[in-house]
Design a protein around this nucleic acid. Structure first.
Lengths: 229, 229
DNA sequence: TCGATAATTTCGTACAGACGAAATTCTCTC
DNA sequence: GAGAGAATTTCGTCTGTACGAAATTATCGA
């Protein structure tokens, strides 16, 4: 009478689980170990909570956990993370482009909707936008089948003085920071020349699209740059 | 150090709570008592679960519960229900109109999204549509301040033989039913003449926009009609 | 090599939401 | 007015997710 458990049936993931997987992916992408504290910090949770959840996710085969060492996504965990990431970024793009939601609000809004929107709906939105490859902050949008460009670009804080570059992406984590970067015209696609960098984490002299600006190291670390093609 | 509980701070409602309130509103709107069993049926939950939740909601002031009698929304419960209903119906309208989601899918999709979308986003969507008053199934959309037309229209099953009417709305609960009604062109705005009704819940002879049709009583009860203006 | 400190895990606990089984209460009919 | 049957509630329990406090383990400097 009752449903026999089908081993391969991918039970829908809960919102918290999707958030954990996304956070782990993100931290790993940054080249760091997805350690308990790092996750707790990123998710604004107590380390004790993370410990418990990580154990559970490991037992579900979504990640591997070496105690005291951190978590690494398995193939299935990674693909779940990318599915969520795709939703998030398609939503961000759609909200910004079609509905005119401000640059600095789309992240928070997408953060909620990504757990509720169906894959078909996400695909519809993507198609309506012409299947964009990047979201409004310049982050690459995974395809339906989980393919993403994972190139890690340099940060404006590390960009060599005297060199020109294009803004590839900006971090979407902090709305206030985003507003600030927006005022400086530091959006994906902007052309940047780095003129001078004061030592000891001092301000950086740049010009953005020809306009001279000074920006601090924290803001500079939120901006990713590549050489002009 | 810790937050003192602010009595009037409207703590965000959880998705299950919003679902309960919506269901109670709906049942009351149908003129019935929001009894435990009715709620359990509507929400596909065990009666025991409903009992517990109803007690909790009563203690939060969202409804009044007379044991063994049923629940009635308080003013604040009602306004929460209408807020959710607005979200639901704006979402349905937006998905159908702008994104081309099929008539019979919008309900399920909106059911998820309604708990995640912010009020500002909903307002943006509504504005993009020109602040429509009805959703794709003809149900009235509450305004931001919780005003709705609560007129209860007659059902096609009760519509007097020999009379003409306009379809005001169709029930969105069952996708298969919706598809069927769609095939018969029974959409809001359609013109209907009722020619004959066989006794004992028999089929009804109608014409829809001039085309003769026969429909059964169950489908007829899903269609609401008003006199032509 | 030994602590001291920091990171992590364990443990007991809490709350929301759900369930089945058992107990209760209502209602309706005779 | 008394049961019978239906509706409802209570009770104990389960799962997921979170927490603080305490115990454990790792690491790094002396």
């Amino acid at each position: 009478m009752s449903e026999p458990p089908v081993p391969s049936a991918a039970a829908a993931l809960t919102a918290p689980v999707e958030d954990y997987l996304k956070a782990i992916y993100d931290i790993q992408q940054g080249g760091n170990a997805a350690t308990t504290n790092a996750l707790a910090e990123r998710l604004s949770l107590a380390p004790a909570s993370v410990s418990g959840m990580v154990r559970r996710l490991a037992s579900q085969g979504l990640l591997e956990h070496e105690p005291y060492r951190g978590a690494r996504l398995t193939a299935s965990g990674r693909s779940a993370a990318l599915r969520t990431l795709r939703r998030h970024r398609v939503l961000e793009s759609y909200l910004a482009t079609v509905l005119g939601v401000p640059w600095d609000d789309v992240h928070a809004e997408a953060e909620q909707l990504e757990h509720a929107a169906s894959d078909v709906l996400i695909d519809r939105m993507a198609r309506a936008l012409g299947d964009p490859m990047f979201d409004p902050h310049g982050a690459p949008i995974p395809t339906r089948d989980g393919v993403v460009d994972e190139t890690r670009h340099a940060t404006l804080a590390d960009w060599p003085v005297g060199t020109r570059g294009t803004v590839m992406s900006v971090s979407d984590k902090d709305p206030a920071m985003l507003r600030y970067l927006g005022e400086l015209e530091l959006r994906p696609g902007a052309m940047i020349d780095v003129h001078n960098r004061a030592p000891y984490d001092g301000p950086i002299d740049v010009s953005v699209g020809g306009v001279p600006r000074q920006i601090g190291p924290t803001a500079a670390r939120a901006v990713r740059i590549a050489a002009v093609a």
